[in-house]
Design a binder for these strands. Structure first.
Lengths: 184, 184, 184, 184
DNA sequence: TATGAATGAGACTTCATTCAT
DNA sequence: GATGAATGAAGTCTCATTCAT
């Protein structure tokens, strides 16, 4: 499972073999087929977990008190929360950047992005009721994509200090950007 | 060539077949092998062209007059320029998002990103000599990644109006962000 | 394995297909690839065994007592021994005549011939210490090549009686030839 | 033509390409197909010439006066004649050792060997009318094969001196052998 | 007549999947 | 349930042969 995720991350879907997954997991290929009907199912399972995890994470970070805390605080919390999720889960790190690549999974990935964007747009509507829907959507898109990009970039960044700096700058950039739209 | 790029873009490297490339190009597999020695060479050729094009584009957009124009103007010029490059080249659109995925090409892609970041950092050094190198580097990273992300996102966005809006917002976000670092 | 040897013998390396080897062996092509990484490895394995077998055979036939027995006896023993080796091993028969044909194997085959010639020349040195090295070498070359040729010829000869006659004549010819050089 | 022969000799039939033949001959592949309908025809043509040449050579060397000269003289003449034929014709050298390898050509080669053996056996009948046919045949086989082997061996021998020595020894061996059968 | 790009059959090889042990 | 040898579909690549120029 983790073995598979690492393999997909390292070699991509096409160059990952079931034999390789089994070997890395320390079992036999026959055993892999006792848990998964086929190779795509392995990927789907991992992809599904990552997406689920991300959705859960968002839901818990942007919970019931979302409108009670200052938006800048919420922004910081979300960025830090997703970063922690990434750092804490090898599978998450391993799969994320491959997700958008493979047919049906790409769609699932984009569907999730759309969900996150929509949820974020709803927040903007709550904060600034006068803001038109298309505007909310565009701003939310900017925010979500920016955060996602930073997570991808720091996943590749071996220097911890630079990764931290990029996170700080991401917050700074988004704060300045949103300050022009959001009150307080 | 374009057929190959489209195929790589649509299915990824692993799921693109030489037979498929030939069929899409309206020729036979044998003919494809008269131009390219193997499948990787096809990808390499396309990837190489895209990278070259991007470098050329940057060089022409951020030319000799870079320090004579206001930085906001330059930013707008670069974003619009790269967008035009993307829009004008089906191959560019097709390949870009796959570039980072395949072994040596991933490195070439990241090397180019590092180049663009370094070149941008140099500009910051010219505009604000007092800015420390690590700071310049981080800011440049933010800018380059943000622009790249937006190009990727609008490539997937079928609605022209929304794409325009995203470009506008990207400029707006980066202007606000940079305004806190750059004079004028 | 034997199937492969027969196929190589019948059609040559280039016209032997892995599919054909598998079919003749009564298995699938996939199974052949579980034992050998590629077509050359199949040939190399067979060639290697034949060469090993021949070296072993020579060593056991021309053993410690080589100088205790009359040279004519030794000659007869070697010829009969190699003939038995040939007759007993279908693979040996199948491969021998192809051995000298394929790149690296050709070298291995010639290297073995040189070995046999050198070992034989040493015997002449023991029998006739006064014989010059080049002379010993030339005579040994004649003997080894003559025996090898006869083995090849009788491998193609379907008539057992004629094959026997050829072996008898080979011994006779070599005895007469060597009698002019060797004592006793 | 010579180009093809060299290529067949160097790489074997399977690894010789029509493209390669054309390139070595300094023309285009299209031109090769103006002279030969297909690859096998190229080989067949060369093989045919070699066989024809060998037959002619034998006929001229063992001509009308065959029974007037001493057999030892005739033997020397044949060996020297064939050696000259070999040395003088690059194609001959190039093709000879490949001849026996390829299906129909192998048969043609063996047919020629049988012819030479039969013709030689006839000579023995003339020299020793009392000799039984099977005996004549076996002796002729020994002689023809021995000469053929020596020609093959010296074709691979880069040292001219050693090649000469091998020819001398071949004559010596055959003379001693035949002396036990033939008068005078 | 000469050329060499185009063609596609066929060879090698990989690997997802099955199944007997 | 675990194993890994067996299978063969499918993909990459080569090259004999054709044919338009």
């Amino acid at each position: 499972m983790l073995a598979a995720a690492e393999s997909f991350a390292q070699f991509g879907f096409g160059d990952t073999t079931m034999e390789g997954i089994a070997a890395r997991a320390g079992t036999s290929i026959g055993s892999v087929y006792q848990f998964f009907p086929n190779k795509h199912a392995v990927f789907r399972e991992i992809a599904g977990r990552c997406l689920l995890e991300a959705r859960r994470s968002y839901a818990s970070l942007v919970g019931a008190d979302a409108l009670q805390v200052p938006w800048a605080t919420l922004l910081g919390r979300v960025i830090d929360g997703f970063r922690a999720l990434h750092d804490g889960s090898a599978m998450m790190q391993a799969m994320w950047r491959n997700l958008e690549l493979y047919g049906e999974y790409a769609e699932a990935d984009q569907a999730m992005m759309r969900e996150l964007i929509a949820a974020t747009a709803v927040l903007f509507g709550a904060w600034v009721p006068s803001m038109a829907e298309p505007t909310r959507r565009v701003i939310a898109t900017m925010v979500v994509n920016t955060v996602a990009t930073t997570l991808l970039v720091i996943a590749r960044e071996p220097d911890r200090g630079r990764a931290d700096a990029l996170v700080v700058e991401t917050k700074r950039m988004l704060e300045r950007y949103l300050a022009s739209y959001l009150p307080g």
